[in-house]
Design a protein around this nucleic acid. Sequence first.
DNA 1: TGACTTATATGCATTTTGCATCTATCTAAT
DNA 2: ATTAGATAGATGCAAAATGCATATAAGTCA
Lengths: 249, 249
Amino acid sequence: MTDTETQFLQTYDPAEYERPSVAVDLVLMSVVDGAPAVLLIRRTEQPAKDKWALPGGFVDIDESLDAAAHRVLREKARMDDAYVEQLYTFGEVDRDPRMRIISVAYFALLPADRYAAALKNSSVDLTLARVAVAWPGETGGPAAAIGGDGLLPLAFDHAEMLGLAMLRLRGKFDYSPVGFALLPQRFTLRQLQDVHEAILGVQLNKPAFRRRMLDKGWIEATGERETGASFRPAELYRLKPLIQASERT
Amino acid sequence: MTDTETQFLQTYDPAEYERPSVAVDLVLMSVVDGAPAVLLIRRTEQPAKDKWALPGGFVDIDESLDAAAHRVLREKARMDDAYVEQLYTFGEVDRDPRMRIISVAYFALLPADRYAAALKNSSVDLTLARVAVAWPGETGGPAAAIGGDGLLPLAFDHAEMLGLAMLRLRGKFDYSPVGFALLPQRFTLRQLQDVHEAILGVQLNKPAFRRRMLDKGWIEATGERETGASFRPAELYRLKPLIQASERT
DNA sequence: TGACTTATATGCATTTTGCATCTATCTAAT
DNA sequence: ATTAGATAGATGCAAAATGCATATAAGTCA
């Protein structure tokens, strides 16, 4: 920092504006039984008591947004090492009845089996709810969460966040390798197709899908095969370790 | 609001967390002479004095993020009615030396001729700088601004914002009608192609481009023709007034 | 051994894309 | 009036991508 910048800081009044609170909310998604799923927490306090909410928390004053998202992932969802990406920032004045809270929504992706531990050991009421979107293709709009007992009412503007996460995911799925975050390290082409069909909400043609995926050059065969199936086992693939910028198409 | 929610609010302490300031910054873009351009303001105060910055401002406590973006567009850039879309939220702790400022970046698009009035009548040092990206295709990274005197140094993390705006624009250009915001209401197919080439940074094939644009069904011929050209005048097209959800492909 | 089930491969028609080239229509110069 | 020059707009065709039916391969299980 230059001398003049230091001098400036001594005369600057940081209390000039009344400030909003800033929070992060996590749309922590997976694919379970061929359907998109999201992690929700039952609220035990007002406001929106007994409604279901995305895991979230306030951003500390000395913590970056990304760091806050990872902290919430760790503390509220009891997970780490997910694929995490910033989604959108929600800033309507009345979105929270308590006070002005601006929320930076992130979405995170993990394979379904990684949720098991968190769901079991949690002291709070966690659930992995099925996600239903009422709109086709790339239209957009809010999304609904379906639990064992039917529709789960969502707190605040979290239905919008969920819908936007689905939309973003659908948009990125075909041209970006983001979908592999929903699969284990070794996966079959059928599993990959199931994940795509779940997120996109359409049936895909098998030979065409297989051709496209292999042509993209993102994955490679391991030579190993699936076990436990009562029919011909599929080959296991893995994501290629590095995608060099120079190889991009 | 329910009674229990009201009761809750009376006992809630909103001063629990130290809060960051929240600002919006606008990446206000256009295409000038076949190249992407961005509106910049020369900073006259510390910090980053004499560097060039995106127009921005703090978000009022009773103002939504979108409203703040439109206010900045009006007050700082002296414009209204632009296409405005939220881009990304920048929240590194040290991104501003004064204090913790979280900035919600927006990008806005306007045809080049709409900048003329703002540039002339402004009391502050505004410029419409050419944007240069050092990365090909969809790689991403910061972008540079080039003025009449060469490279313009950008304040804070505004080079990242500019780069991200270019990346988002490139990604959306082909599947969304966002590009029409950079053109006047009536435009020729050649103008449309020029805008696409400027943003994407590649040369496009004329018949293929024309076919794709007409097939998308976004535009319609007006029957009118260009005037002033010293050669065969091109037909003027316009964006179709409404895109019904049911017509979406 | 053969029925069953799913993986993987192949062949082919259809659609999309890239590209060269041809024709149309304007202005301006002669 | 005619022609050169320039760009708009159309057309034809090869190459590539896609959708889809079908054939073959490789396991389990009765």
